[in-house]
Design a protein around this nucleic acid. Structure first.
Lengths: 248, 248
DNA sequence: ACCTGAACACCGTTCAAGT
DNA sequence: ACCTGAACACCGTTCAAGT
């Protein structure tokens, strides 16, 4: 009862030696948290959230489903958390196939050394607009993961870092106290709301105008109107930022 | 092949007769789509969406789970659809326990006869604000159902009726063409974004200020600031509406 | 440390059957 | 018409075992 029993860790040591000597085939499929998250997102994007299954995910990784629990001991809920963190954290670039717009954002850094996150010297509104566009792109690209994002609290490191950047920018814009918090909330709400509206409205109205006519005359009258979501988002964003920072 | 075969509906007739005569105990638990939806929402609100299970729902209704399929033959997905319709359709009052604010909205109608939906004679901005507040209340009350709402297309009757009301109001406000569509999108996005932000931020920041200090100085500086979500929503709503209808 | 295999409790859904 | 009971395929998770 009172004595601490030392665990026998002899076996692992022997295994390590054997592995180094090459006398034992390493039971290692090259699994990692990052690889799991990437593959999970591929399933979500391709087949939808409901088809993301531990067993299917294992198949995609060419591994038994139970192997995933070694990297996410708390199970699927922890995996969801990690997915949200990944999608939400705009600052990390990793793993995304950028497709053909890869060269677009290329601004060659002066020093090739990796000196960590440099200070962003752009004015406050450019910084906020850049974040908003990047965040929106992430959400649209992985819109299948939106249900996960909703009821997960933004209390991770990445979320706090982002919030700090926002608060710093709005402070630089001349706001202070509650106005800063209000502005931060408005900015986050704007992006989320715009993305969800766009996702929901995708492929609408697929209704036959004739079926609408009479019952919903105002909808029917505007049935041909198509708006450019990208343009609309940027316009609304600029309007919002200038409204938030008007002299109060 | 070419001949239409008449179905034998003798048995049901006999059953009906027997039921009327009382000679047969009616195998009827009083189940209905409305009762199922109400009970499903009670589970969602009380225990969360993930715990809404056909079997658990059956238990709550004091019925075998399989009985639900008689009212929703297409299964759980159809039930989800119905739940979204219910939560989303602000015009129907049914089934919600209004708690203690029941008497607040009481404006006694002049004619007690039920003449269907009367024309709303209030000015356009009051109508839109009333809808926005009612919709927000619905979403907040059933915030557990938010993930369901996201990727369901708003192409139901109720959604089109709401959209028609919005377009009519914005037209009355002097907008036309694409501006009406833009305004409608902005209004819907605003409510959704505000609600999701509020739900996500609930109970934040629960962080110890000391833990934040240094790493996130701007967040730490504002850690005590608490905003009234209701007030903030109404302020933002008024600002949005006036911004959308400024002379263009 | 990293992964497998068998097992358990639970889930959505189907289908024949009861009244 | 409305509900039950048994059954099937699939799911998340645990746990002992393998290397």
């Amino acid at each position: 009862m009172g004595c601490v029993e030392k665990r026998r860790i002899l076996h692992p040591c022997l295994y390590k030696v054997s592995l180094v000597l090459g006398s034992v085939s390493r039971n290692n499929a090259g699994l990692s948290a990052d690889r799991i998250i990437t593959e999970a997102l591929r399933i979500i994007d391709g087949q939808g959230l409901r088809r993301l299954t531990m067993r299917r995910l294992g198949d995609a990784l060419e591994v038994e489903a139970m192997a995933i629990y070694h990297h996410f001991p708390l199970g699927k809920e922890a995996l969801f958390e990690a997915i949200v963190d990944f999608v939400t954290d705009v600052s990390r670039t990793g793993g995304e196939e950028t497709g053909d717009e890869a060269a677009a954002q290329d601004d060659p850094a002066d020093d090739p050394e990796d000196t960590g996150p440099r200070e962003d010297t752009r004015p406050w509104d450019e910084r906020l607009r850049a974040w908003a566009h990047a965040y929106r792109d992430r959400l649209l690209r992985h819109s299948g993961a939106l249900p996960l994002i909703i009821n997960r609290r933004p209390d991770t490191d990445g979320a706090l870092r982002t919030l700090d950047l926002h608060y710093a920018a709005f402070t630089e814009a001349g706001l202070s106290g509650p106005d800063v918090v209000r502005a931060g909330a408005a900015l986050d709400s704007y992006v989320t709301g715009a993305v969800i509206h766009q996702v929901r409205a995708a492929g609408l109205p697929g209704q036959h105008p004739a079926a609408l006519n009479g019952r919903y005359p105002h909808v029917a009258a505007l049935v041909g109107v198509e708006l450019d979501p990208d343009q609309g988002f940027d316009d609304g964003l600029r309007t919002l930022l200038s409204a938030l920072t008007r002299n109060r």
